[in-house]
């Protein structure tokens, strides 16, 4: 009789533990669902931000028409805004079945990004040197009056555009460095 009682107590303990475990797993499941929802909402906001950026760039590409609605037929024919190339991020879908596979792909992409970042870093330095030289030569030409004012401003505009592009590249390289840093 005593053994029976002991067994019954043990079984009761087992049942209680089981119940506890079930509730723990239910809570864990809820947490996982919440994390998934958070991930999805984050991705949506990121995509929304990117779309906004693309829209802004598109608006910048064609501001002349919007700002000056009363243009003559001739002017419309002459002013053809060049389509500005904008980098559009892609939504890539991977077909990983395990986290190990996903990690392997990530490692591979990380290596590729590191190499690209290193190359781009060198490119930034080279571009800065070239731009500084071009600016110096331009100023010299201006001082020596070898160049007309219109040509000077045209070249200066080009240099400034290139400098802006180099700044953008530097920022992107910085992001890449942060992402590949361990």
């Amino acid at each position: 009789m005593k053994t029976m009682n002991k067994i019954l107590t043990l079984l009761l303990i087992l049942c209680l533990t089981g119940l506890f475990n079930t509730s723990v797993f239910a809570q864990l499941g809820k947490k996982v669902e919440e994390a998934e929802k958070e991930n999805v909402s984050k991705e949506k906001t990121e995509q929304g931000g990117l779309e906004n950026k693309v829209k802004q760039a598109e608006e910048q590409a064609a501001p002349a028409k919007k700002k000056a609605p009363a243009q003559t037929q001739k002017e419309e024919e002459v002013v053809v805004p060049e389509p500005v190339k904008v980098f559009t991020p892609k939504v890539i879908e991977y077909t990983h079945t395990t986290s190990v596979q996903a990690k392997e792909t990530q490692l591979m992409k990380k290596g590729e990004l590191k190499a690209t970042v290193a190359d781009a870093d060198t490119k930034v330095l080279e571009a800065r040197t070239k731009l500084a030289a071009a600016r110096e030569a331009l100023e010299k030409d201006k001082k020596a009056k070898k160049i007309k004012e219109a040509a000077y401003y045209e070249k200066l505009d080009k240099i400034m555009k290139a400098e802006k592009a180099v700044n953008d590249l530097e920022l992107t390289v910085q992001k890449g460095k942060e992402l590949t840093m361990d």
């Binding site: 996903a102 690209t116 992402l179």
Partner: peptide, 24 residues
């Protein structure tokens, strides 16, 4: 959830690489 997290980071990396190439 782990796969999704890793893949989202990988996608950011790949897009950043594309952006760097484009800007270069």
């Amino acid at each position: 959830a782990e796969i999704q997290r890793i893949d989202s980071v990988t996608m950011v990396m790949e897009n950043l690489k594309g952006q760097i190439d484009f800007t270069v």
